[in-house]
Simulated assay, not measured.
Amino acid sequence: MPQSIDFHLGTIDVLPDGDGSRVVHSQEILPEALAPIVEAAVSEGIAGIARYFAACP
């Protein structure tokens, strides 16, 4: 049976960085063993957003 998340607080901040932006993701999650799974999913989502905007003229 999959393990359930007991608590999760995640933030994604987009900050100015030179001529572009910097994305900072942080999270608190219980149980901590699920952190790498959620981190990988969020990282892929952020990478997808970056690819989308890189393709825009």
Rank of each mutant, 00 (worst) to 15 (best):
Y52Q: 12
A35S: 14
A47V: 10
G48E: 06
C56P: 00
V42I: 12
P36T: 13
R51W: 01
A47P: 10
G48L: 06
S21V: 01
G18L: 09
A33Q: 13
S21Y: 01
P2D: 01
A54M: 04
E32K: 15
G20P: 02
V24T: 07
A35R: 15
V38G: 00
V23R: 04
Q27L: 14
P2Q: 03
G10S: 15
D19V: 08
V23N: 05
A55P: 00
P31G: 05
A54D: 13
G20F: 01
V24S: 05
I49W: 14
A47M: 10
P36A: 10
V38Q: 01
D13H: 07
E32Y: 10
G18Y: 10
I5F: 03
D6P: 00
R22L: 10
P2Y: 03
S21A: 03
A35V: 06
A55D: 10
D6I: 08
P57E: 02
G48W: 07
I37E: 09
E32N: 12
A35Q: 13
G20S: 02
G18P: 13
A54H: 08
I46K: 04
S4Y: 09
G10Y: 12
P31S: 02
G18H: 04
E44K: 15
M1D: 01
D19R: 13
G10V: 13
V14N: 04
T11N: 11
E39N: 09
F53N: 10
T11Y: 05
L30S: 08
V23D: 04
C56S: 03
R51S: 06
A55F: 00
F7Q: 13
E32P: 09
D6V: 03
E39V: 00
H25V: 14
F53W: 11
I5L: 08
G48Y: 07
C56E: 08
G20I: 00
L15T: 12
S26W: 03
E32A: 15
L30Q: 04
S21I: 00
Y52W: 11
Y52D: 07
L15A: 14
F53C: 03
A55Q: 13
I12V: 14
R22H: 06
V24K: 12
G45Q: 06
I37F: 09
I29V: 15
S43H: 10
H8K: 03
V42L: 07
L15H: 13
Q3H: 01
V14D: 02
E28H: 09
G10C: 12
T11H: 12
A35D: 05
C56L: 12
P2K: 08
C56D: 04
G18S: 06
G45A: 05
F7K: 15
V14H: 06
V23K: 09
S43V: 04
A35P: 07
V14Y: 07
H25M: 09
I12S: 02
